[in-house]
Amino acid sequence: MHAINYEAPKSLDEAVKLLAAHGEKARPLSGGTDLLIQLRAGTRRPEFVVDIKEIPELARISFSLQHGLKLGAAVPCIAIHENGDMRKYYPGLTEAAHLIGSLQIQSRATVGGNLCNGSPAADTTPALVALGAQARLAGPKGERIVPVDGFCLAPGRTVLQPGELLVELQIPAPERHASDAYLRFIPRNEMDIAVVGVGAALSLDVSDDRVVEARIGLGAVGPTPIFAAEASKSLIGKTLDAAAIERAAKLAVAAATPIDDMRGTAEFRRHVVGVLTRRTLAIAAERARAANQR
């Protein structure tokens, strides 16, 4: 590996200044489970590595039914799984975080890093897209908030500008009968990267089981994570019966633009998008019906 300089700022201000000073030569370090591999492979060669885990604001999970969730960019996945609010109010996102690699990886890896790494196969990104998450960014020109849908531009590329970093992810509190789910397909039972990932969030009117709000996010079936807009829209206002789910699954398949690679063929991935969309919607619906959040 090439020589690097390491900084561990204690405040967001300090981090922003460091990153601004070094611009494209710097890279924020969160869990490091992707970055260290890239440094070794030489696919990224930053001169400055800025560790953001010492910044208290970035290492926090805060949740309330009034304000929703603020998930710090440096919170390790295992802390999400161990958080009662996360498990109760965002079970899909929590599952996605708990699916990333092994426990060893989850002890380090973060949802923020998963997003900023820009991999189309990131497990937590479709779950965030389904939840309508927003990303709060800080940079030399100040702060801005952007939707997670559209955050990734291409494999390994995001909207983050040189010197900019992700501070936190913001997700609204769930409605009374709302919940989410995430499923991925992998060939083994553990340790693989998603061949297909599907996140779904549903809000229901339980009086007649009608869908009030629906969002479906897809992973590993295009150059970036995908918000399946048509599939999501097709559910809104409908009774969540087998026909509605089937229609949404078909539209989700149509939204996917997968390729053939060592993890699966395009044909396989398209088929599995349908399978997982059906399964994910069923789980999210069951959870939403059972939920009674406020």
Binding site: P187, R188, N189, E190, M191, D192, I193, D261, M262, R263
Partner: peptide, 29 residues
């Protein structure tokens, strides 16, 4: 039998050069 294989692309380059994508059984498999 189930998941292990060398995956070469059409230029003859090995694509799965790590244990993430050369899939040996874990104890959950």
């Amino acid at each position: 039998g189930l998941n292990e294989e060398y995956f070469y692309d059409d230029r003859g380059i090995l694509r799965n050069t790590g244990l993430l994508d050369y899939r040996m059984p874990t104890c959950l498999d």
